[in-house]
């Protein structure tokens, strides 16, 4: 991190101070955010009289981990070179990185003419993400917290019922297309659709008890096929993989 061969001493101490502050407080605030965000559901599970055993939580966790475990690790790895250490602590707590925070950082860097990779660019990104966070928190509080809660109370029950029943397929239909288009890996896409179709339409009707691990089977199957039948023109660069 200290590639300051020609910079004056004050630069290095000032930036060292910045790095120390952001890394320390980035960690503290992120641990805080992590604990608070898990506290809510744990309170529901254990303090409201619902009959849920720890086993059910572990099973749910394992099912999600089997599906997204790889992404948990790969995402921070691929974003680090773009965001830099300080912005990492902001981005992974605020969320919506690729569709909101990255554009915000890039526009700010362009507007002040900061060269990518420079210290100015790093600071500009951190400041821009702060600006984006403010706008995001305000719009969430107003449009979702206030307006949304009011909307829910006034829309006809039939609309609410349709929303509850069918919002899941609409989200997943759109997200699947988004994933396919943004990954740009036609071969992998074919494998994924084939494996999933076999799992959903053949395996599950035969062995319904596999429903719990069906997504994990599809993920593993797709990875194996995509890996063993990967194209000759190996992709040389790992790009950030993120769908919002």
């Amino acid at each position: 991190m200290s590639s300051l061969t020609s910079a004056p001493a004050t630069t290095s101490t000032a930036m060292a101070d910045f790095n120390r502050t952001t890394s320390r407080w980035g960690q503290i605030t992120m641990i805080g955010g992590l604990l608070i965000s898990v506290a809510g559901p744990l309170y529901l599970v254990f303090a409201t009289g619902l009959d849920i055993g720890p086993a059910q939580l572990w099973i749910a966790f394992a099912a999600v981990a089997a599906t997204f475990g790889i992404i948990w690790i790969v995402e921070p790895l691929t974003y680090y070179p773009i965001l830099g250490p300080a912005a990492m602590y902001q981005a992974f707590m605020i969320g919506n990185i690729s569709n909101k925070l990255l554009p915000a950082a890039l526009i700010a860097q362009t507007n002040i003419g900061a060269k990518p990779g420079s210290k100015r660019a790093e600071l500009a990104a951190v400041v821009a993400i702060c600006g984006a966070a403010v706008v995001h928190l305000i719009s969430l509080a107003i449009f979702v917290g206030l307006l949304g809660s009011w909307l829910i109370s006034v829309i006809p029950p039939s609309v609410l019922l349709v929303t509850r029943l069918y919002v899941l397929p609409t989200v997943l239909g759109a997200v699947l297309v988004q994933a396919i288009v943004s990954m740009k890996q036609p071969r992998t896409t074919v494998f994924a659709l084939l494996v999933s179709a076999v799992v959903v339409f053949v395996v599950l009707p035969l062995v319904p008890s596999l429903a719990m691990v069906s997504t994990a089977i599809a993920v593993l199957g797709t990875i194996l096929l995509a890996w063993f039948f990967r194209g000759k023109a190996a992709i040389s660069e790992a790009k950030p993989i993120h769908i919002e």
Binding site: A179, T188, F191, A192, L220, G221, A226, W227
Partner: peptide, 11 residues
């Protein structure tokens, strides 16, 4: 390049 994309599209 391959494994994460395959995991996402598969999921």
């Amino acid at each position: 390049a391959i494994v994460p994309a395959a995991a996402l599209i598969g999921a």
